[in-house]
Computed example of a mutant assay.
Amino acid sequence: MGIVGCGAISGAYTTTIERLPGLHLTAVADLDPGRAKTVADATGARALSVPDLLSDPDVDIVLNLTVPAAHAEVALAAIAAGKDVYGEKPLAATKGEALQVLRAADTAGVRLGCAPDTVLGTGVQTARRHIDDGLIGTPIAATAVMATPGHERWHPNPDFYYVPGGGPLFDMGPYYITALITLLGPVSKVIGAASRTRAERVIASGPRAGTPIPVTTPTHVTGILTHDSGALSTLVMSFDSAATRAPHIEIHGDQASLIVPDPNHFDGDVLLHPVDGTWRPLPVRAGYRNAARGYGLADLTTTPPTQLPRASALLALHVLDIMESLLTSTTTAQTVPITTTCERPPPVPLT
């Protein structure tokens, strides 16, 4: 495999790749040659230019870790070179670009996957197993809440979080929406509202500390997702909150409620509260143990070509469609139908 984009997230992947059989990092590339060299020196891979990496016969699959605005461009170039592609979320900056990537992959006959793969860990998978086993009865509703003060407090280059294609919805929404689809199935329509409280943010750390950056995308988004099953999910994604004590995800059935751990992590406790009872932890029943970023990539490489990988591009397209439609709804004040769909990915046995 080869990595395009050697920013902060690349370290999480390279650490995981080292312990996954069947994956070998052969080359890395970045627009900043210094960053590529740093990763190459740490991993033993070769530092190449992007075109040289894409044409390298020793690269079978490209891990696309570029900024969201470049996801489609890099994916299309890799597909044109005959490489399989696994990318960070979102699949592309827009639904139109994502569809172009999917069509190109289909025409070229290459495999295409996309983060997040956090839903493959024991946290979300254990919750899914208990829901599928009927422990909460019929799922009726869910809440999903992510509330922070914003990424400029810790990220040295947070500019892309505050332009279209960023914001709390496009940055963190994929974790929560992918988990909701994994737990409750695809979504048929959405309605949302949004706000932007400040026109600029100030970088708080790193060499650019004190530098103001413009904000041109909503920084607080809330919406209601109607699943095909009839269940209703309420979503809150915010960079305008000091803190929250709300569960990351809570699923309500007619027999019990379930707390699902942080979908930005792979594990965590799943808690159950029956109608007549109290909160109690549930045993781990499913998912990859000790998983980390890169397990979706490994799942892609081991999935038979005739099957979709669990972290599939079709799932990522559906998530992107939901997010775009939510933002459309925030400007039209109308319910927006979702024109894409997907199957719930196959569950992950306890592995």
Rank of each mutant, 00 (worst) to 15 (best):
G210D: 11
V124Y: 01
A141N: 06
F170Y: 11
P156Y: 07
P139R: 02
N157H: 13
A199R: 15
T126Q: 08
T219L: 11
L183I: 07
V190F: 01
Y162F: 14
G123Q: 03
L183A: 06
A147P: 03
V221S: 03
Y175M: 00
I181T: 09
L169V: 10
Y161R: 09
M146I: 05
Y176W: 15
R208K: 11
T138A: 14
I224T: 15
S229I: 03
P186K: 01
L184A: 03
F160M: 15
L225F: 02
G210V: 07
L232C: 05
P186R: 01
T143H: 09
A141W: 02
F160V: 15
G167M: 12
R208P: 00
G121N: 04
T217Q: 04
G150C: 02
I140F: 02
G185M: 01
T143N: 10
H151S: 03
W154M: 08
G167I: 10
I213Q: 04
I224L: 13
T138F: 11
F170S: 01
G173T: 10
L225V: 11
G206L: 09
T219P: 05
H130S: 15
R208D: 13
T143Y: 06
P214M: 12
D228E: 13
A142P: 07
Y162I: 15
I136F: 06
G230V: 08
T197E: 14
I224H: 09
Y175T: 01
T197G: 07
L180I: 14
A141V: 02
P156G: 10
A127F: 12
A199P: 12
G206T: 05
P139V: 00
V145Y: 07
D171P: 00
R208V: 04
P158G: 06
P218S: 14
Q125L: 05
T222P: 03
P207R: 10
I213K: 04
G137F: 09
Q125R: 10
F170E: 01
Y162W: 13
R198Q: 13
G167F: 07
A231D: 04
A141S: 15
Y175I: 00
A142R: 00
R201H: 06
P186M: 01
P149Q: 01
L225T: 06
A147C: 08
G192K: 04
A179W: 03
T122H: 10
G165H: 07
V163R: 11
Y161A: 10
D159Q: 14
P156K: 12
I224F: 05
H151N: 12
Y176G: 05
Y161E: 15
T226W: 08
T143D: 14
A142E: 03
Y161T: 08
V163E: 14
A179C: 11
